[in-house]
């Protein structure tokens, strides 16, 4: 009997291979930097410094990481059931409606700790709704989930332009965004968490949705490896025929998994809307849904891998923003 799956030791599969991938990725990136005519080592220094050089930078890095943890988990949950959810982008975008509605409704009368859970439920509900439709179409009508979720990303984007220019925009304002939320719609920063390490958060929007993201990661781990639903999901993901043999209802799993995935994506909206901008703007997702695919792949769809992968991508985001502005300044001089 040939053995199709030669098993690597766990540390190699989950530690070494991602690390090698990472090194290769950095080498390729270094080549691009060379092509641009800069010193890759300088660029790397600027990037790392820009991501970790100061308490404020670390705050920004973790702020982006929060977003990517949510979308990474969203993609990973679907992966475990063998579904490729490219629609996290759109689900997060639509999830924003739930957050915005909760904030617009309650921000002036309620404190943040009342608004936050309601906004969270709202984001989950709207994100899940947007994922339910492709899930239902796959389960009942056999339309390919990859294609439908791509289509739903674009439909979401048009819908949001419509809502933000016509419905949710305050009267008399030109900008396509909601009004700025009062205190109740603003999440407290995690300055105390950084100050434990002697860091100053500065202006970074690092907020308590980070803790929610960590909690969500734990929840996903429990879901996948410790519940019956997770067992059924994994069976289907590895072998649809075995799942059928075991009497697992494929349509039910597809729909439920897509809704969980969409809910996780939707929660991402809490971070930028209530944590940074205090209003809902056009395109606030900014590709985080697609980054989530990379995060999930790099983290091997395991929450313990997704969190570091998300922090890595947060570092790249923040580092790139910082070093770019530095470059521009040096060129200006």
């Amino acid at each position: 009997m040939s053995n199709p799956y030669a098993k690597l030791p766990g540390w190699a599969e989950y530690g070494l291979i991602p690390l090698i991938n990472l090194v290769v990725a950095f080498l390729v990136a270094g080549l691009v930097v060379l092509l641009v005519g800069e010193n890759p080592l300088d660029a790397a220094y600027h990037m790392i410094n820009g991501a970790f050089g100061r308490g404020e930078y670390i705050g920004f890095t973790l702020y982006y990481a929060t977003t990517f943890i949510f979308t990474g988990l969203s993609v990973a949950v679907a992966f475990h059931a063998g579904l490729f959810n490219i629609g996290s982008e759109g689900q997060a975008y639509i999830g924003g409606i739930g957050v915005a509605l909760a904030c617009l409704w309650l921000d002036q009368t309620m404190p943040w700790y009342i608004v936050f859970p309601i906004a969270m439920l709202g984001s989950i509900a709207f994100g899940a709704l947007w994922a339910f439709l492709p899930g239902w179409l796959q389960a009942k009508r056999g339309s390919h989930i990859v294609i439908t979720t791509i289509m739903f990303n674009f439909i979401a984007s048009s819908l949001m332009v419509y809502l933000l220019t016509r419905v949710l925009k305050p009267l008399g304002s030109m900008a396509p965004q909601t009004r700025t939320f009062a205190e109740g719609g603003q999440l407290p920063k995690l300055d105390w968490l950084l100050s434990i390490f002697g860091l100053d958060i500065g202006n970074a929007p690092f907020n308590i949705s980070f803790l929610l993201a960590i909690l969500a990661a734990f929840g996903v781990w429990v879901l996948i490896w410790r519940t019956k639903l997770g067992y059924e999901m994994r069976t289907m993901g590895h072998s649809p025929s075995a799942a059928r043999y075991a009497g697992i209802s494929e349509p039910r799993i597809i729909i439920v998994v897509m809704m969980i995935s969409g809910g996780l994506a939707g929660m991402m909206a809490l971070n930028p809307i209530m944590g940074e901008q205090f209003r809902m703007q056009l395109d606030f997702v900014q590709g985080a849904g697609f980054v989530g695919i990379a995060v999930a792949l790099m983290g091997r769809s395991h929450p313990a891998g997704i969190i570091p992968a998300a922090i890595l991508f947060g570092m790249l985001y923040q580092g790139a923003l910082k070093s770019r502005s530095k470059c521009r300044r040096s060129h200006a001089i």
């Binding site: 294609i147 289509m151 439909i155 819908l159 419509y162 016509r166």
Partner: peptide, 20 residues
């Protein structure tokens, strides 16, 4: 008719087609 609906129409049509 909202412009956005027109812009989303290709995608909506495709989804409807895919759904059979």
């Amino acid at each position: 008719v909202p412009v956005q609906l027109m812009q989303a129409l290709p995608y909506i049509l495709t989804v409807v087609l895919l759904a059979g």
